[in-house]
Measured scan of single mutants.
Amino acid sequence: HNGKLCKLKGIAPLQLGKCNITGWLLGNPECDSLLPARSWSYIVETPNSENGACYPGDLIDYEELREQLSSVSSLERFEIFPKESSWPNHTFNGVTVSCSHRGKSSFYRNLLWLTKKGDSYPKLTNSYVNNKGKEVLVLWGVHHPSSSDEQQSLYSNGNAYVSVASSNYNRRFTPEIAARPKVRDQHGRMNYYWTLLEPGDTIIFEATGNLIAPWYAFALSRGFESGIITSNASMHECNTKCQTPQGAINSNLPFQNIHPVTIGECPKYVRSTKLRMVTGLRNIPSIQYRGLFGAIAGFIEGGWTGMIDGWYGYHHQNEQGSGYAADQKSTQNAINGITNKVNSVIEKMNTQFTAVGKEFNNLEKRMENLNKKVDDGFLDIWTYNAELLVLLENERTLDFHDLNVKNLYEKVKSQLKNNAKEIGNGCFEFYHKCDNECMESVRNGTYDYPKYSEESKLNREKIDGVKLESMGVYQILAIYSTVASSLVLLVSLGAISFWMCSNGSLQCRICI
């Protein structure tokens, strides 16, 4: 991952900044910058967002509201009850120091605090018919004063009620008058409520006091790749198909172990950190130390980045220098085999997901714990399936590479015959000098055995068991695999060879 928040398929997220979902939807004055928000790819909250409900109280069923919003990608904020005409018999300019803005008392931008007009609070009834052709999110509140005197001074009615009804919602609220500790300079409380109004449905408000009335509502448009994440990451000019709280993932790998919460087309989250597919040879310690064997393909974004291909070729060293050249036929066979294998694994496992966190309130801790156990169970199954699949494929890959290298080895052996000696570690020792032209003939299969047989015969008789390297004779190393990324691999195959001279070296080696 890149540690950044990015656009998702070209669409920017909605960053709530210092506000949370509650503050944004109710219209906390400190969240005025969010009022123009219309569309987004996903919503970003920060872990310690401080601006929620400015007048103390709870947004009821907040967790369910977050779940609903996680599939919303755009909205239209509109005046559901026009301020100047909807409440002619009531005062609608209630403000509070708890919702101060720029040093002055204020109130929510989407709600109206209705109080008595003169000395009376006549029963009010108002309704709205949803003609938007889509779901409408309606929010309101109920004020709970701290004393009967406060109730009387604001609403005149000691036994007030609030009723809200639609086809799918029907509740009646009565204020709970009680002494409470002071929070944000208030002994009173406000509880906030919401409902989704279906197209064509009607919502009716009736009250004799204590109503925090809707002013603006939201017509919602769903987008199934949307979601809500909690993150401290910063926004950058970048684009992605998959976003996590820790950063964007741009990967076609089937798995990731970065974060379980994802938005967009994302690899499946697994616990494993070692889900690797081999593309090189079986481990040979001396070669492995030099980083030549054991190439791997990573299938977990965050564990290993991208696929690494092994390729086969020849390396030689003689009086004229040293050089490398790919054996294109065996390399292409290996590439085709690995590509098919990788595609097979991805096809089997690479279903892209959006995974969002589930919200539970403080009273639902047991449910949250149960949900976590269920999620953990599914996660263990996914991890096991992934590891088992790759384990089985790896064994076949190792066998496949062994065969490829063996074929190259036999190709060289059949040409050199007794003009060189096998020394048991995949290397041959020449009994004759071999210049670049000679080396090329070994690589392309045109090695002239009779041409060098007499010199080889004489050297075999002279050496008589002495280690060949100390006599200045020449080696050919018969097994060799270097490691390159897919891009470098293609470039390498396009070149005939490249040279690395070893000044004054008397050794001649050709490596497979």
Rank of each mutant, 00 (worst) to 15 (best):
N318D: 12
E437T: 13
Y384S: 14
I284R: 13
I463W: 00
S505N: 12
I287S: 00
T397M: 10
T354C: 10
E469P: 01
L275A: 00
I381V: 15
K358C: 09
L391E: 10
N419Y: 05
M471Q: 15
M500R: 15
A484L: 13
T354E: 01
I300S: 05
F360D: 07
E359P: 00
F360S: 07
F293D: 01
I510F: 09
V412R: 05
E440S: 13
Y269F: 15
L281V: 15
Y269P: 04
V261A: 02
I308D: 01
T244G: 04
E237K: 00
P267V: 12
G247E: 14
G472T: 11
E437H: 14
E454R: 13
H432E: 05
I287W: 00
E440W: 12
S441Q: 09
C238N: 03
E410L: 02
I423Y: 09
M235V: 14
W311G: 06
K373N: 11
G298N: 10
G298A: 04
Q317W: 09
T383C: 09
M349Y: 08
N239V: 12
I249F: 06
G445A: 14
N459M: 10
E469Q: 07
Q415V: 05
Q320V: 02
F255R: 04
G424A: 05
R290E: 00
N369V: 08
I346S: 03
V442C: 07
K358A: 12
T273K: 12
D435N: 15
N436S: 02
E455S: 10
D375Q: 08
F498I: 15
Y384W: 10
P285R: 10
L370Y: 06
V356K: 02
R460N: 05
Y324M: 07
Y474W: 08
I476Y: 11
A295R: 02
N232V: 15
A386K: 03
L253D: 00
S330C: 08
E429L: 09
N419Q: 02
A297Q: 03
D309M: 05
T351A: 15
M367Q: 13
G280A: 06
Y269E: 04
V491M: 10
V261F: 11
T240V: 13
N318T: 04
N318M: 07
N252V: 03
Y474A: 11
I423H: 12
S272T: 10
N436D: 07
S251M: 04
K413E: 09
S470I: 15
D399C: 04
K241Q: 11
L391S: 02
A420P: 02
R366W: 11
K467N: 12
